[in-house]
Computed example of a mutant assay.
Amino acid sequence: MLLLTEDQTRDALPYPDLIDALAKMFRSGCVMPTRHHHDMEIPGEPDATVLLMPAWVPGGYAGVKVVNVVPGNSERNLPAISAQYLLSDARTGEMLALIDGGELTARRTAAASALAASYLARSDARHLLVLGTGRLAPNLIAAHMAVRSIDEVTIWGRSREKTEEVVRSLADQFPVKLKSATSLKEALGEADIVSAATLSSEPLIKGALLKPGTHVDLVGAFKPSMRESDDDLVKRAEIFVDTRDGCLSEGGDIVQPIKAGVLSPGEIKADLYELCRGDHPGRQSEEAITMFKSVGAALEDLAGAILAYQSVEH
Rank of each mutant, 00 (worst) to 15 (best):
E250M: 12
G251P: 10
E267D: 09
V241C: 11
V262S: 10
G246Q: 04
G252A: 10
V255H: 13
P265A: 03
C247Q: 06
P257A: 08
D253I: 11
A270G: 02
E267R: 11
D271V: 03
C247H: 05
F240N: 03
S249L: 11
Y273I: 15
V262D: 13
V241G: 11
E250T: 07
L272A: 08
A260M: 06
K259T: 15
G252L: 15
A260P: 06
V241S: 13
L248D: 01
G251A: 15
V241L: 08
A270H: 01
G251K: 15
E250W: 03
R244E: 00
G251C: 12
F240R: 00
T243M: 08
S249F: 05
L275N: 04
L275I: 01
Q256L: 12
E267C: 09
P265M: 05
F240E: 02
L248M: 05
L272R: 08
Q256I: 11
A270L: 01
S264T: 13
P265T: 01
P257Q: 12
L275V: 00
V255D: 11
Y273F: 14
L272F: 05
G252V: 14
G246F: 02
C247F: 03
G252F: 09
L275K: 01
L263S: 07
G266C: 01
I268A: 04
G261E: 07
I258C: 07
E267G: 08
S249T: 15
L272Q: 04
I268F: 07
V262C: 06
C247L: 07
S264V: 15
A270I: 00
I254H: 12
G246S: 10
D245R: 07
E274A: 13
V255G: 11
L263K: 12
G261V: 10
L263I: 04
L263G: 09
Y273T: 12
F240V: 04
Q256N: 09
E267M: 13
D253L: 00
R244M: 10
I268M: 08
G251I: 07
G261I: 06
R244T: 01
Q256A: 07
D245V: 11
A260F: 10
R244C: 00
D253C: 02
D271P: 09
R244H: 10
R244V: 02
C247A: 10
L272D: 05
I254T: 07
A260G: 04
G266M: 02
E274F: 07
K269Y: 05
D271Y: 06
